[in-house]
Design a protein around this nucleic acid. Sequence first.
DNA 1: GTAGGGTTAG
Length: 806
Amino acid sequence: MDQIMVTTRPHLLSSSLLPLTIQNLQQPFLPSKSKLNQTPNPNSDPSKHQPSITYSFTPSLEQTQQIHAHMIKTQFDHTLQIPLNSLQTHMSPSAQYNFLITSYIKNHHPKLALKLYTQMRRMGTQVDNFTIPSVLKACGQASMELLGRETHGFALKSGFDSDVFVCNALIQMYSECGSLVLARLVFDEMIERDVVSWSTMINCYVRNRVFGEALELIREMHCLQVKPSEVAMISMVSLFADIADVKMGKAMHAYVARNSSNERMVVHVTTALVDMYVKCGNLAYGRRLFDGLAQKSVVSWTAMIAGCIRCNEVEEGVKLFKRMLEERKFPNEITMLSLVIESGSVGALELGKWLHAYVLRNGFVMSLALATALVDMYGKCGEAEYARAVFDSMEKKDVMIWSAMISAYARSNCTNQASELFARMKDSGIRPNQVTMVSLISLCAEVGALDLGKWVHSYINQQRIEVDVILRTALVDMYAKCGEIDAALRLFSEARYRDSRMWNAMITGFSMHGCGKQALELFEEMQRAGVEPNDITFIGLLHACSHAGLVADGKKVFEKMVLDFGLAPKVEHYGCMVDLLGRAGKLDEAHELIKSMPVEPNPIVWGSLLAACKIHKSPNLAEVAARQLLELEPQNCGYNVLMSNIYAASNRWIDVAGVRKAMEDKGTKKEPGLSSIEVNGAVHDFMMGDKTHPQTRKIYEMLAEMIKKLKEAGYTPNTSVVLQNIDEEEKETAVNYHSEKLAMAFGLISTAAGTPIRIVKNLRVCDDCHTATKLLSKIYGRVMTVRDRNRFHHFIEGSCSCGDYW
DNA sequence: GTAGGGTTAG
C-alpha cells in the first residue's frame, strides 16, 4: 500500500493553522515507529509545538473517498473527526484540501486531485504554497501541461515562486510533460536551489534521454560542491538501469563509491547498482556487489534473482530464491511480480508455473498486476490456455489484463480467439489503447489476416486511437506481410518520426516482396535521415539482395555492415550470404564462406547451402551439407527429404533408399505443413489431408475438379516431394492433399469469382504446389498470393513473381 | 532500491 506523508512545514504553523492531532492511532493508519516518537501530546499547546512534524498514513483510495465524503459533510470545518480508526484532527480547510489532493495523487488519481483543486479555488479556500506542489505533481502525472502552466502563473502572481518546494515541483511537472526547456528555465531562475532541485533537473534530462546535459549538470553540481543525497543517487542509478545504459551506470557507480557515506543507505544504493548491472546484462558484476552486501533486504534479493532469470540463469535464480527463504527473508508481491515477469521474458514455463503455485499456496492476494504478469508469462511461454485460466479467475478486469490476454492469443496465432476477446472487451466498456491494437495488428501480420487487419486499422482511426511509432511500425509490418506493400509504404511515408525499427519493417517488407532495389534505396534514405541501422536492418537487406538475385549488391552491403557500421556479422548474416551466393550458383564460394566464418554455422547456414545444391544439382556438396545438418538436427527429416530429392534427380536410387532406411530407423518427424486462408475476417487453418473443416465435403469436391482441370492443362503431379515409401498412386494422393491445395480449394468455393486469393503457409512452397498454383491462377482467372516461410509469391496468369527462384 | 500489457528478425 502506498504511503501518504502528511508533512507540516514550519511556515504553515501560524496561529490560525492548528497542527495535526492524532489519538488512538490504529492500523492501517499506523505511522512508522520513528514517526510515533514525534507524535505530539494532544493536550499540549500547539503554539509551543516543535516546528516540523511528519506523519505517515496509508489511506487507500476507498479510505480517501470516505474521508473526502466526511469532509464534505462537515463542510471542511476546522474541527475534523475522521470516522476511520478514531483518527481525529484539527485542520484548516486549506489543509484538508491539501490532504485530499495528496491522497488522490498517491493513489494515482491525479484527475480527482485536480478536480478538488479547481473546487478549492472556486470556493475561495486559500491556496497556499503547500497546495501548489501537489497540484503540479498531479499535472505532471496526468501530463496536463496547460493546467501546469496556469498553476505556474498563479504561483508567480502569488509570490510562491521563491519557495524552493514550488520550484522543484515546477521542474518535475515540466519534466513529466516533456518540456525540457521550461524545466531548465525554472531551474536557472531559482534564487536558491537545494539538492532536490539538482537531482530533479538531472532526472529530467535522463528521462528525456539527454545524457550529455545530465552528465554536465552532475559535474556542475560537483563543482559547486552540492552533494546529491543518497536518494538522488539511487534514482539516477535506477534510471540508467531502466534504459540499460551500462556506461552511465558505471559512471554513477564510481560517483556513488566516492560520494556515498551514509551507512544506513548502503543496502539501498547497492541494490540499485545490482539492479542496474543485471539490467545492463552484466550479471557477474551485479552478483559480486550482491554477495558483498552484509545486510540483504527483500528488495536486494528480488533484484538479484530477477536478474538471474532475465539472464537465463534460471537454476541459479531458483537456488537463490531458496537461499533467501532460508535466510528468513520472505518475498513480497513485487518480488513475485518481478520473478514472474522475468520467467516470461526467457520462456521459463516450469519456473513460471512454480511461482504461480507459490503465489497461490502462500496466500498472496491475486492483484490485477500479478494476474496480468501471470497471463503475460503464460502467453510468452506459448500457453494461451493457462493464461486464459488466470484471466478468467479475475472478477475485475482492466485494459491491461485484456491486452495481455489478447497478446497471449496473438503469440499463439489464435486469431479467432483474439478477435472474439476483443469484441468482448469493447462490449464491457473497456476502451482499448495502443498496446491492445499493436497486439491485434501484429497478430494479423503474423497470420496474414488482411481483412481483419484493415478492419482493426479503421477501428483505430474511428476511435481516434493515437498512432504512435510502435503502432505505426506494426501497421507497416502488417500491410507488408499481408501482401499490400503499397499500403505499407504509404503509412511509412506519412510518418512524422521514424525509428530504426520502422525503417527495418519497411526494408524487410520490400525484401519479402522481392523488391531488392527498393530495399537498397530505402537503406540509402535511412542513412541520409541519420538513423543508425542495426543487425536486423542488414538481415533485411541481405535477404532482399538474395531474393532479387543481387549478388554484387549483397556483397557490398555485407562489407558495409562490417567496415562502415562496425557491426560484427552474426550467424544469421552468414546464413543470408550463403543463401545469396548459393542461389546465384556460386556453390563453392558459399562453401568457402561457411568454412571461413568465425562463428559456428547453424542449421540455417547449412540448410541454405543444401537448398542451393538442390537448385543447381550438386549432389556431392549436398551430401557434405546434409551430413552436417543431420549431426546438428538428427530429428529433422526435412533435410532427408531434400537429400532424397537430390539423389533422385541424379538417378542415385541406392542412395535414395539409404536415406529412407535411415529415416525409418530413426523414426524422424517432419514439421507438419500448415496453410491458412482468411475469409470474411475469420482465419481457416488446413493441415495435409485435413478433414476437420465443416465444409470438408465441398472442399474435396472442388479439389477433385481442380486436379481434373490441372491435368487437362498438361500438369503431372511432381511426386518426388513425397518421401514415404508408398506406391506412386498413393504419392499422388498425398501431393494432391497438401495443405496449400486444400486452402486453395476452400478459397475458390468461398470467395467471389475474380477476387484475389491469399494463402499463408508455415513452410516453403513445395515444387508441386508451386507448379499447380501457377496453372490454377490461369485456369480460374484469379490472382493468387502465397506467403511462405521466406517470401511472397504472386501468381498471375500462369506465372509467379519469384521467377521460380525461391 | 525491486513494480502488470506493445513494433522490426528468428
